[in-house]
Amino acid sequence: MTPSSHVLLFAVLQVAIGLAGLITRRTGEVAVVSGLVMLSGVLVAFCALARALGEGPQAGGVVVLLLLIALAVVGLICLYAFHRYRRAVVVDEHDRMRR
């Protein structure tokens, strides 16, 4: 059986990779993917902690999963809307809520 410390180490590494991508990259698609990677790592950490504490992982994990779904849906819709007007999506250029 995998120790919980290994799972938490993996989750921390994945959150760190996602955070680095979210901070350093300016492309919209990569920013959305970085957020997904971060939330996925948090989800794995939730499962590991719930297993270590002897509780069911479903309740806390569903909240993070809803965040993940919201980020995926809203991010992809925003990217699609931006793609219709510009070829490349650089998040620094979109600082207004109108065309």
Binding site: T2, V7, F10, Q14, T27, G28, E29, V30, V32, V33, L36, V37, S40, G41, L43, V44, C47, A48, A50, R51, P57, Q58, G61, V62, L65, V89
Partner: peptide
């Protein structure tokens, strides 16, 4: 960008396998 999106989908799939192994099949 497209490759980044597809790699993100791969990350979600592999993490689903990990979560399944951690005892949360519904999640």
């Amino acid at each position: 960008p497209v490759r980044a999106l597809l790699l993100g989908v791969i990350v979600l799939g592999v993490d689903a396998g990990l979560i399944f192994g951690l005892g949360a099949p519904l999640l």
